[in-house]
Amino acid sequence: MRLRSLLFVPGDSERKFAKARTAGADVLILDLEDAVAPSMKLAARSMVSGWLGEAATIDARLFVRVNPLDTAMTADDLAAVVRPGLAGILVPKANGAQDVATVAAMIDGLEVEAGIAPGTVKIMVVATETPQAMFALGSYTPPHPRLIGLTWGAEDLAAAIGATGNKEPDGHWTEPYRLARSLCLFAAASAGVVPVDTLYADFRDGEGLETDCRRARRDGFLGRIAIHPDQVETINRCFTPSEEELAEARKIVAAFAARPDAGTLGIDGKMYDIPHLKAAQKTLAAAGESA
């Protein structure tokens, strides 16, 4: 499943859902958590359940961000949305792999009740929103069979630790959040799941978004959260390998396939080894090509 662009959609807004469904995102995250006021939670559940019934008419996969486990709303959220059309659950404020196992166990029975093939509904985690979570990022390895991606968040973490801000005057993250970002990336790589960068809050700053996306892809992230439909095109473009990158990756993969016992190869006057092969395979996978 491609997790290049993931667009948040408030679960209580028909208007925003109508706009989001044609935005070109790989995934729409139908939000029952922070984007929905407490007084609208029940209505949002009903609306999101109805939207899932339209999945066949939407190019994007449909995920739902449920409320955190410590709110006592998660089970009811899942009961309302685990139905045909649901591709994944985004678990917020997770404290580690045990939370994935807890949510997965709930999904197991609900899939059976809904007549969905076991294992269909995947799980993605916002892995850095609590102080406890920072010490549990290694717990996602080995990954639960449903786990497909990790992303990170800064706002809830800032609130949890009592920070007065999380950005430098130039817009860069301060040290605690650079650490959270890096550890999320390493945790995803260790688990073999997709690392997804957090949102870029200023949706009017297209130039800043593009610069930040290119930095994220350079570092190893394979996708990004979007909070506005206007951000999707930039995210898709930045996280899609260029034709030049794909051509080089295909050449590297083909060369090693032709000589499977080789650890190092010369291609067009340059030396390539196994790390280059692995990078080439990831480049092809990011474009949806089989290596």
Rank of each mutant, 00 (worst) to 15 (best):
M1H: 07
M1P: 02
R2K: 10
R2A: 07
S5A: 02
L7H: 09
F8V: 07
V9Y: 08
G11E: 01
R15D: 05
K19S: 00
T22L: 10
T22Y: 06
I29H: 03
L30R: 05
L32M: 03
A37H: 06
A37Q: 12
M40N: 15
A43I: 10
W51S: 04
I58T: 09
A60Q: 11
L62W: 04
L62H: 03
F63G: 03
V64G: 00
R65N: 00
N67A: 09
L69H: 02
D70P: 04
D70G: 09
T71H: 02
T71K: 11
V81P: 05
V82F: 10
G88C: 02
L90I: 06
P92K: 05
P92M: 01
A97I: 01
D99M: 10
D99S: 06
V100C: 01
T102L: 13
T102K: 15
T102C: 10
V103S: 01
M106V: 05
L110G: 07
E113H: 04
A114W: 08
A117P: 01
V121D: 01
M124W: 15
M124P: 06
V125N: 10
E129W: 00
H144E: 00
P145N: 11
L147F: 08
T151M: 15
W152F: 07
G153A: 11
D156S: 03
L157A: 02
L157D: 01
A160S: 15
P169D: 09
P169F: 06
D170N: 13
D170Q: 05
G171T: 10
H172W: 11
T174D: 04
P176T: 02
R178C: 01
L179M: 04
L179C: 04
A180L: 11
R181G: 00
R181N: 01
S182H: 14
S182I: 09
C184V: 03
P195Q: 11
V196K: 12
V196A: 06
L209A: 13
T211F: 06
C213W: 10
R218H: 14
G220R: 14
G220P: 09
G220L: 09
R224D: 03
R224I: 01
A226N: 12
V232H: 14
V232L: 14
E233I: 10
I235M: 05
N236Q: 11
R237I: 03
R237P: 00
A249I: 13
V253F: 01
A254P: 03
A255K: 10
F256C: 08
F256I: 11
F256H: 09
R259F: 12
A262F: 11
A262K: 11
I267S: 05
I267F: 00
I274V: 13
K282P: 04
S290R: 14
S290L: 08
